[in-house]
Design a protein around this nucleic acid. Sequence first.
DNA 1: GTCTATAAACAGATAGAC
DNA 2: GTCTATCTGTTTATAGAC
Lengths: 188, 188
Amino acid sequence: MNTATTRGQLLSHAKVLIRQRGYNGFSYRDLAERVGVKTATIHYHFPCKDDLLIEAIDDYAADEAALMQGIDAALPAGERLSRYAELFYGTPTDQICLCGMLAADFASLSDRARQAVQSFYRTHERWLGNVVADGQRDGSLEWCGDAEAAGRYLFAAFQGTLMSSRLFQTPSRRHDVVASMRIQPRRD
Amino acid sequence: MNTATTRGQLLSHAKVLIRQRGYNGFSYRDLAERVGVKTATIHYHFPCKDDLLIEAIDDYAADEAALMQGIDAALPAGERLSRYAELFYGTPTDQICLCGMLAADFASLSDRARQAVQSFYRTHERWLGNVVADGQRDGSLEWCGDAEAAGRYLFAAFQGTLMSSRLFQTPSRRHDVVASMRIQPRRD
DNA sequence: GTCTATAAACAGATAGAC
DNA sequence: GTCTATCTGTTTATAGAC
């Protein structure tokens, strides 16, 4: 996404607006004012609101996937989990995860948008599930039970924590997820 | 809340609409059609949308608090936690927690509504924190670390799990929170 | 590509009859 | 209490000039 172009600026601001106010909480007018164009310009680049939404999700998902895949798979699982958590810690205090917000807006979404949000969730759940499985093997994470279920559970906990950290304006709450886990120093 | 009256029906349907679509996702027209009145009737009972919202939150919070306080405090903590989880399991598959939804809609809420949502969160976080503290004492819950933080964390996990269980239309996901905890049979 | 102008539907809200 | 009628502003979206 090139933020130098009008199109890139529209996408960039749209992602922020969705993360702050949700899909039904912002209008083409809001977006146009922030970028400094007229609403007709948005319609030129994104004919309808759903087109804008789909591109925003894909864009966001690609960015987050890149950050996640940037975590060295050779590290002990406990360390990888800590680094994943750090990605959350950087979230602006007035925003939540774009796909966490859209999961709340589920009823208002097109089929395509729903699938994109589900795909985002699955990608992160699977990554976390693999980390837990590795942690069970290398002993760097203490977790009894199904690693796949742990991945789903951990991702839900991250999302819920991001939500309440914004609700109370207390970024420190974001540390609750990792703090609740017993991360062990590597045994080998 | 008396569901026999128009006012009660309005509140009842408003709570469902908020839990399905969020505060910005439904209109007076939507609500009027469901109840079978005209929009002016809603304005008679609830002059502006924020009045309706506040009453919906208070109403919901009172109902949930009653259910929560209905859990016998004499039970072992592990059992109390399981019963709390059962309250979540009964959520209709197209809805999430009203206050979980409004936490997402945070940016669109009045100060009063924000405070009501925060109060709901605090009540449930505190209750869960007390359960964890009791569980540490009676040995029915295995949890190392601060019980208060555990309360915040568990509530966030419940909320996040409710969200993803709706996103994927898989109610079984709601079991992930309790399944992840090591609930021990009472030692005494 | 971006604009002005405009459409058509919808939003929350009010006045006043019954 | 509930209605009809109406107001005022906003919404997404399109047509056509530049």
